[in-house]
Simulated assay, not measured.
Amino acid sequence: MRIGIPNTLFAAYHLPYWRHFLMECGAEVVLSPPSESAMADRGGKLIPPEFCIPVKIFMGHILSLLEQGVDLILVPRMNSRVKDNFFCPKFIGLPEIVKYAIRETDGRLLIPEVSCNGSHIRMLQLPGQPLAPPGWMRRAEQRANAAWEQLLARCRRERLILPEACRESRPAPGAAQLRIGLLGYAYNLYDPWISKGIPAKLTGLGASVLTWEMLPTDRIERGLRALRRPVYWNFGRTLLGTGLHFLAAPELDGIVYVSTFGCGPDSVVLKWLSLEAAERQKPFLSLSLDEHAEDSHLQTRLEAFCDMLSAKKEEHAV
């Protein structure tokens, strides 16, 4: 059985887990091609304009997989079983969004219900389609989780972003002149078309990048304990906890926050962190992306930010 995975949104972060799980179940995994402008244009015509660009590009990936003739397309329902902790409504309702926007997917969606808390991925409900006997699928889930947790452990141990940890080898890092905390949802950072390669751009400007997957969970949680009110969004909570840790880290020269236009959770978390950064006098750059974002514009802003950080370091060194 050929099962397609849309190579963006949830797969920008959890692709290693899902590929391992499906292969353990005996399926042939088919990835959609890398994101591009044509996908965003096609996908954006199928849903209301107020949807964020990651969902628009996701719809384009679904169309691409249909054209590749796969038997089923993986669209998990992301959920949480932790009190006062929720995924974005678009993630929870993603299978229905796809089903009603693209009628050709009727009967061709693989929809496991999944709880993602920390590094562990738990299937609350197995896919309705019989990929394998239930006991076999549970074993596949355990093996996929073990491989996934090893991958995240490598991120923390070697200070790698997830795409680097997925590669067997990587170029030797040069001497970094700056240390920058990079914040943003995985699909905003690791889908190269959405992010326009922001992590690589920062590295090219002589910065070493620190992200949430390089931190132990207790450090992320530490900053959240002092809050008077809970943060209800699942991944927004991770970003806020990571951001508060970055703000308190004297070894970091600055913070870059990458968001997409129209993101509800980001409207809270981004504002919160920007106010905290101003109060603590920590350099903070916010980049808002949509389908009209220009590569040269982002490059100019990142160069200016890094130049400012370098000048500040030189001033303090005198």
Rank of each mutant, 00 (worst) to 15 (best):
G107E: 03
P48C: 10
E149A: 10
R229Y: 09
P54I: 02
I97P: 07
V258H: 07
S64F: 03
M23S: 15
L46S: 09
S288F: 07
K282Y: 01
F21M: 14
P112I: 04
G206H: 01
A27L: 06
L65E: 00
T217K: 14
I161L: 15
L287A: 12
L151F: 07
A101D: 03
H245M: 12
L183W: 00
A38W: 06
E158W: 05
V258C: 15
L22W: 01
Q125G: 11
R301N: 04
R219Q: 12
A207Y: 03
E291Y: 05
V269C: 13
Y187V: 03
S32P: 09
G206I: 01
E279Q: 14
S37G: 12
W272A: 14
P173A: 08
A293K: 04
W272M: 15
Y190M: 15
M214N: 07
G69A: 06
G118C: 11
S32F: 03
D106Q: 11
G223H: 03
S288P: 00
P216T: 06
L273K: 05
C166S: 12
I121F: 05
A12Q: 02
G135N: 08
R280K: 13
R157N: 05
R154M: 10
L309S: 09
M1L: 15
A40C: 15
L224Y: 04
A172C: 11
A176P: 07
A101N: 05
E24D: 06
D266Y: 02
A165P: 04
P250M: 08
A11C: 09
M308P: 14
A11W: 00
L224F: 06
L298H: 09
L110I: 11
E221V: 13
A249D: 14
L205S: 09
S195C: 12
Q68S: 08
L252I: 05
L74D: 02
P130C: 13
A12F: 01
L151Y: 02
A311K: 10
E168F: 11
S169Q: 11
G264M: 15
F87Q: 07
L178D: 03
P265V: 03
L94A: 14
E291V: 11
P89Q: 00
L205N: 05
S208L: 13
W148P: 10
P199M: 03
E303G: 05
R167D: 08
Y232I: 13
C116I: 13
L126F: 05
G60Q: 02
Q281Y: 03
K56I: 09
P230E: 00
Q129P: 11
A226N: 04
L124Q: 07
M214S: 10
A153K: 07
W136H: 15
P216H: 06
I121T: 07
Q142G: 09
E276T: 01
R280T: 04
T203W: 07
A277P: 14
L182V: 07
